[in-house]
């Protein structure tokens, strides 16, 4: 049984992404299979060289390198969105086609969207 944490909110407009990643880490801590999908406004989470102040929001980018320690190794983005984004993004993701994206969604028993 696997769970997908599906991120589409911006990392800086609310605490939603922070609370989504917290949930992903807890699934990992409980040794449950968990993957992350990142799309839309949430892609901003992956932009390299972010330097948010405390007031601007939690530096969530720093969490990304630690995901592997929770056995969270499948982090999916859409190829088309990454190409259109134009900035260099964190490299620990798997960029997949739209068709593969749909297959990936179907492989998860639970999907939590944030």
């Amino acid at each position: 049984m696997s769970t997908l944490i599906y991120l589409s909110s911006s990392p800086y407009t609310s605490s939603s992404l922070k609370e989504a990643l917290d949930l992903a880490l807890v699934f990992g801590t409980f040794e449950q299979a968990v993957s992350i999908a990142i799309t839309g406004d949430a892609l901003a989470l992956l932009v390299e060289g972010q330097t948010p102040s405390k007031r601007q929001g939690k530096h969530l980018y720093k969490l990304l390198d630690g995901l592997e320690f929770y056995d969270i190794e499948n982090i999916y983005v859409k190829e088309t969105e990454v190409k259109a984004f134009g900035t260099s993004l964190w490299t620990g993701v798997q960029a997949i086609s739209q068709e593969a994206w749909i297959d990936m969604l179907e492989q998860h028993q639970h999907i939590y969207r944030f």
Partner: peptide, 20 residues
């Protein structure tokens, strides 16, 4: 409760219904 309780509910239930 901690988020671990949500993980337990996820594992113990046939369906999780989300209301946002």
């Amino acid at each position: 409760e901690g988020l671990g309780s949500l993980v337990s509910l996820t594992l113990e239930s046939d369906r999780i219904m989300r209301f946002k």
